[in-house]
């Protein structure tokens, strides 16, 4: 593994990132009647070569975070720092350079690939737009090489997306993301829509590419088994906030936040004998609306440990162990031994 979790300068840093969307009423004269707090004060770092998993259920804000990092949304407050500089301050050339270095792979390759473009155009387009290659034969040669790296035959270069299987399309999406030799790739549910046998192939490919090209991934997913397999560190989100952040194996073996515990308990393991022995903790209720979040700890209405303090106190993301933070006032704080 190339990761060094204690690398001094993070490649990506989120500083108290907030993204609130106004809720408007009225047809002609619109007035703002509320705010949806999609992301509400998230701080994170991502070191070079590291894969950070960002997990949580629908509406927790994980995709809004990825849109803020990709400069598709402007944060309401806080900042996204890439290689130490705030991406909101970038001028045009700096933004272009930033867009070369940060790429994304999305869930559904059928809707994220242009159906009217052939594989050669899809994968070659970033090279032309960013002026990396200009003559057609050089682009074609580079596209063939990228297809080969992603396990695709060069014969596919003239195909359209609909002429390929789901797994092949996802490989094309990965080849396009790699075309500009990025530093950071945002994998937003990148393997979620794939069948089991194909999903395993794509996970292997992402791991091989990470090692070969020294890539950094922000891996957004809802399948916690996949996240455990691929990620060095994991951040768990609930209703726009981080509730737990830790080294991956530590988080999965000894989750501290009650939400993380319930989330892991809900994921079945493919082994009937283990499943028979396991405690199945079923979390009651549903995620509340982010336009009217609960007071205090946002998780308290569903939490088995919650009491009156939890309705009043907004918990901080405190250290609960080595390289392990959780936002819950009910967790016993360990006495940390000096590192």
């Amino acid at each position: 593994m190339t990761a060094d979790p204690h690398h001094p300068a993070p490649l990506l840093e989120l500083r108290d990132l907030r993204k609130h969307f106004p809720v408007r009423r009225g047809a002609l004269i619109q007035r703002t009647v509320g705010q949806v707090r999609a992301v509400d004060g998230v701080s994170l770092t991502l070191s070079r070569g590291e894969t950070l998993g960002l997990v949580g259920e629908s509406g927790c804000g994980k995709s809004t975070i990825s849109r803020c990092i990709l400069k598709l949304e402007d944060p309401t407050s806080g900042a996204v720092l890439f290689d130490g500089s705030d991406i909101a301050t970038f001028d045009k050339p700096q933004t272009a350079a930033f867009r070369r270095r940060v790429q994304a792979i999305f869930q559904d390759p059928f809707s994220s690939l242009n159906p009217r473009m052939k594989v050669e155009e899809i994968v070659g387009e970033p090279l032309i737009v960013h002026g990396v290659e200009s003559d057609r034969s050089a682009v074609a040669a580079r596209v063939r090489q990228l297809l080969d790296v992603c396990g695709l035959s060069a014969r596919l270069i003239d195909r359209y997306p609909h002429e390929m299987s789901g797994g092949q399309r996802q490989r094309v999406g990965i080849a396009r993301a790699l075309a500009l030799r990025p530093d950071l790739i945002i994998c937003d549910e990148a393997v979620s829509a794939l069948d089991v046998s194909i999903q395993a192939q794509i996970i292997r490919l992402l791991e091989d590419l990470r090692d070969e090209f020294d890539l950094t991934y922000l891996f957004i997913g809802h399948d916690l088994s996949v996240v455990r397999h691929i990620c060095h560190r994991v951040a768990v989100m609930y209703l726009g906030k981080l509730v737990e952040l830790s080294d991956s194996d530590r988080l999965f073996d000894a989750p501290q936040h009650p939400y993380t515990q319930a989330l892991l308990s809900a994921v079945p393991v493919p082994d009937p004998e283990i499943e028979q022995r396991r405690q199945h903790q079923i979390l009651p209720g549903e995620v509340p609306s982010p336009s009217n979040p609960p007071s205090g700890c946002v998780f308290h209405p569903r939490c088995p440990l919650a009491d009156e303090d939890c309705q009043r106190t907004v918990p901080d993301l405190d250290v609960v162990g080595p390289d392990h933070r959780a936002a819950c006032i009910k967790i016993d704080r360990p006495v940390l031994e000096p590192a």
């Binding site: 395993a200 192939q201 996970i203 399948d223 088994s225 397999h229 991956s248 994921v267 493919p270």
Partner: peptide, 18 residues
Amino acid sequence: LNSVPRLDRPRGSPLEPI
């Protein structure tokens, strides 16, 4: 069975895709 990642197995456990 060999291609599903499992919640009870640590990072980097072998995955053998079909």
